[in-house]
């Protein structure tokens, strides 16, 4: 009992950081979310256009969020939670970047998804913050600073991935090799199932013969079709098992493709983050 209590206290302290101060904003349908009001509508629309076109071209998702305040939460904690909630970047490429600005704390963070850590390493992210963004912010030119920061991020991440608009058309279809492998697999399973059924049928047939012999004096013995019905019940159960096996196999193949982002608006594609990037102040 005491030990349990101690464990509870320990767990509570260990995870008390999970009692967060600031709520994560709901995932927006735009690339730029300007809660702090640092951008003019004009500049916002321009950035939106650029980022949308950029995703169409490279599939990389770059998202901007400005906040009036972090309300006491640590920048990095908030940033990684945001990244986990919004899932910026494509699922299989993890190519998302979040450009976060907290006005009251005068803090900036560039959070980089796993897939872009190579082209946008921490040192470069830091450089962008201190050379491209912070000087303008210090002078009060938020629009200019944000635009320059975004452009620098785009420049760094540009070459990493090519668009797969062509690939999009046949996303979800299988390559001939995959199809062939699947067909072979299906055939093997089919043969196995048929063989099992055949064996069961033969065994059952012999058992029925024996039953007939044993019960030759009974008047109310099973007819063959009654016996067969019982066998069919067994088959039904078996088919149930195979169906479950089949679906387990199907889903374990990872048949889920990340949601495709539509043209224009932003929607998280399922990218993951591991805390890469840099933080800075102005």
């Amino acid at each position: 009992m005491l030990k349990d209590l101690a464990l509870f206290v320990l767990l509570f302290t260990a995870f008390s950081s999970s009692l967060y101060a600031l709520d994560i904003p709901k995932r927006p349908s735009t690339y730029v979310t300007d809660q702090a009001g640092l951008l003019s509508p004009d500049a916002r629309a321009r950035l939106e256009q650029v980022l949308s076109a950029y995703e169409r071209q490279t599939t990389n998702q770059v998202v901007v969020l400005t906040l009036p305040s972090l309300e006491g939460e640590a920048l990095e904690d908030f940033s990684i939670r945001l990244a986990e909630a919004w899932k910026v970047g494509q699922q299989d490429r993890d190519n998302g970047v979040i450009f976060l600005i907290a006005q009251a704390e005068r803090e900036i963070r560039i959070e980089v998804g796993y897939g872009l850590e190579g082209v946008l390493p921490d040192a470069l992210a830091g450089q962008i913050i201190y050379q491209e963004v912070a000087p303008y912010f210090r002078a009060g030119k938020f629009e200019e600073g944000i635009s320059r920061g975004v452009l620098a991020i785009l420049r760094a991440t540009q070459g990493e991935y090519q668009s797969r608009i062509v690939g999009d058309l046949r996303q979800g279809e299988l390559t001939p090799q995959e199809l062939e492998a699947l067909q072979a697999q299906g055939k093997a399973v089919g043969i196995f199932v048929l063989a099992v059924i055949a064996i069961l049928f033969v065994i059952d047939f012999f058992r029925y013969q024996r039953y007939l012999y044993d019960h030759r004096l009974y008047l109310d013995r099973y007819g063959f079709w009654e016996w067969w019905f019982r066998f069919a019940l067994l088959l039904f159960l078996l088919s149930f098992i195979f169906r479950i096996l089949f679906y387990t196999l199907l889903f374990s193949r990872g048949g889920y493709y990340g949601s495709r982002s539509g043209f224009g608006g932003f929607s998280g594609g399922g990218g993951s983050f591991g805390g890469g990037g840099a933080s800075g102040r102005w």
């Binding site: 260990a14 995870f15 950081s17 990095e76 990684i80 390493p121 921490d122 040192a123 992210a125 830091g126 450089q127 983050f273 591991g274 805390g275 890469g276 990037g277 840099a278 933080s279």
Partner: peptide, 22 residues
């Protein structure tokens, strides 16, 4: 400066992965 940024980034990754492990 580059090394320092890398160190900071790594410290942040450590805290992220530790939290996920927990």
């Amino acid at each position: 400066l580059a090394l320092q940024a890398q160190l900071e980034g790594t410290e942040n990754r450590i805290s992220v992965e530790r939290r996920r492990f927990n």
